[in-house]
């Protein structure tokens, strides 16, 4: 019962942040600020959604006994979470660097050290 409430809360948080990521891609003016929305919010939302899956499958695992296939589901969901956590910031870094080297200026910037030092 209380587990179900926790799962629903996690799902709500995860869905909210994923929606924020999708809206942020439209609200922000240029590629760098869009990267903020697209990287942080989806990573955080994914953590909560996958944790909800993990909690649910662990409770099913405990209910069904040790040798149920739920154990594999738990482990693999955690591996998928680690893969997301490792790859998401790295690809954001790559996109930001590519955008700056291909000559896109940050919109409405108050300061740009990179532009001054490496034009």
């Amino acid at each position: 019962m209380i587990l179900n409430i926790i799962i629903y809360i996690f799902i709500a948080i995860g869905c909210f942040f994923n929606m924020m990521a999708a809206l942020g891609l439209h609200r922000f003016p240029d590629v760098y600020t869009r990267l903020h929305a697209g990287t942080k919010c989806t990573t955080f939302g994914s953590i909560f959604l996958i944790l909800a899956v993990v909690i649910q499958s662990i409770s099913a695992w405990v209910a069904e006994g040790l040798s149920s296939p739920q154990s594999i589901l738990t482990l693999h969901a955690l591996i998928a979470l680690v893969a997301i956590l490792l790859t998401n910031p790295t690809s954001a870094h790559a996109i930001g660097r590519a955008a700056h080297r291909s000559g896109i200026k940050p919109a409405r910037a108050v300061v740009d050290d990179l532009e001054k030092e490496k034009p």
Partner: peptide, 24 residues
Amino acid sequence: AMAKANVDVAYRVITGRINPGIVR
């Protein structure tokens, strides 16, 4: 820190208040 960051970004998505720049 990550939780704080996400609340911060969600706030900026809703209100649209930004003041960006690149620093070294």
